[in-house]
Simulated scan of single mutants.
Amino acid sequence: MPIDRAEWESYFDESGHILKSQEFVSSQILERGLDPSVRSEAWKFLTGYYSWQTTHDERATVESMRRKNYESLCNMCDKIQPLLETEHREFLEVRNIIKSDVQRLYVRDAQGNAMLDKSQLEKILLLNYVCNVEAEYQRGFHEMLLLFRLLVEEEHEIYWLFQFFLQKTENSCILNIGVEKNLRMLKRLIAIMDPAFSRHLERKGQVVQSLFPWFSLFFQRVFKSFDDVWRLWEVFLIGKPCRNFQVIVAYTMLQMVRDQILQEDMSGDDILLLCNNLIDLEADVLISKACATYKLLMKHQEKVPQELQEFFNQPEQ
């Protein structure tokens, strides 16, 4: 069973000091996951929004600081926006793309009532673009941000959790930063773990490189529910069982369709279609299989080339 509210609260004393080690909490999250009732609070620790060493009072101070810093960023953005509109044509293009992306989101409950304010998402995405030169804006951010909005309600919380999530996962879902690295590592991992499959994929063109949506959306579209997406993302946040676990996850998904690809001698386009049809997966099952893949890789650590040694380095906490 996942960590529920009662168990989560037992990890802290009356002042809010954590009683368990971060290693213990991370291991429990990897094995069992978080109950939805504690996820919004726990993610503030996992992302670094809160330090694990803080008390209730200290976290209240941090909360106030986060809010004020967000308001300052918003004020700054408002002041420079007229300049950006006149001097940078790209700004107007990105703003229009963000608006178009957000408007396409379906955010109504079972009764057809609007669940959230789309203009809020637009505002946060535009601020993220202005303040984050490296990451810029990429298609799919609106879908990712939606999950943060469903996780927490306050505008500053949504913004900072998204920022810290990107940082904690080493920008692994950013096209011009982490995604290219992930694809290179995935290609090398297939060559090491499954040479026959690797040779087959090589003969079919740029198959592995075309799997970039898995990483750029951080596997958001392969699961049955948002809970499954959060379940996998919190594993990425704790950095267990290894760094760059998203590459192991992608390799594990490819192994699910490996035999069919080889038996039917599929073309590159058919392989991609098959991979794109990997949907309605269960996060716990995928995580378990990916952990088994990592254990197998660990047995042959001495044979792993230097560019894949990152799998055996623990990420910074």
Score class of each variant (00 low, 15 high):
1 M>T: 06
3 I>W: 00
4 D>H: 11
4 D>M: 06
6 A>Q: 09
10 S>F: 04
11 Y>F: 05
13 D>I: 01
17 H>T: 04
25 V>R: 00
27 S>I: 07
30 L>S: 01
32 R>G: 01
32 R>D: 00
33 G>N: 00
35 D>Y: 08
39 R>M: 06
42 A>L: 00
47 T>F: 04
49 Y>K: 03
60 A>R: 09
61 T>F: 09
64 S>K: 11
65 M>G: 09
67 R>T: 13
70 Y>T: 08
71 E>W: 11
73 L>G: 15
74 C>T: 13
75 N>W: 12
77 C>T: 15
79 K>M: 13
88 H>F: 15
88 H>K: 12
88 H>M: 14
89 R>M: 14
89 R>Q: 15
94 V>D: 03
95 R>D: 07
96 N>E: 11
97 I>M: 11
102 V>W: 03
111 Q>T: 14
111 Q>W: 12
115 M>L: 10
120 Q>V: 09
122 E>F: 10
125 L>G: 06
129 Y>I: 05
137 Y>P: 11
144 M>W: 04
148 F>Y: 03
149 R>L: 02
153 E>C: 08
161 L>T: 10
163 Q>S: 13
164 F>S: 08
165 F>D: 03
166 L>T: 14
172 S>K: 14
173 C>H: 13
180 E>N: 10
183 L>R: 00
183 L>V: 02
185 M>H: 04
189 L>Y: 05
190 I>H: 05
193 M>G: 09
193 M>F: 09
198 S>E: 01
206 Q>H: 15
207 V>M: 05
213 P>W: 13
214 W>S: 07
214 W>V: 08
220 Q>E: 06
220 Q>H: 11
225 S>H: 01
225 S>I: 00
225 S>V: 00
229 V>N: 00
232 L>Y: 08
235 V>G: 06
238 I>G: 01
247 V>R: 00
249 V>A: 01
253 M>K: 01
254 L>S: 01
256 M>A: 07
256 M>W: 09
266 M>I: 09
272 L>W: 13
274 L>Q: 13
275 C>R: 03
275 C>E: 02
275 C>H: 04
277 N>G: 14
282 E>Q: 03
290 A>G: 05
297 L>S: 04
298 M>V: 10
305 P>W: 03
306 Q>E: 13
311 F>H: 06
311 F>I: 06
311 F>V: 07
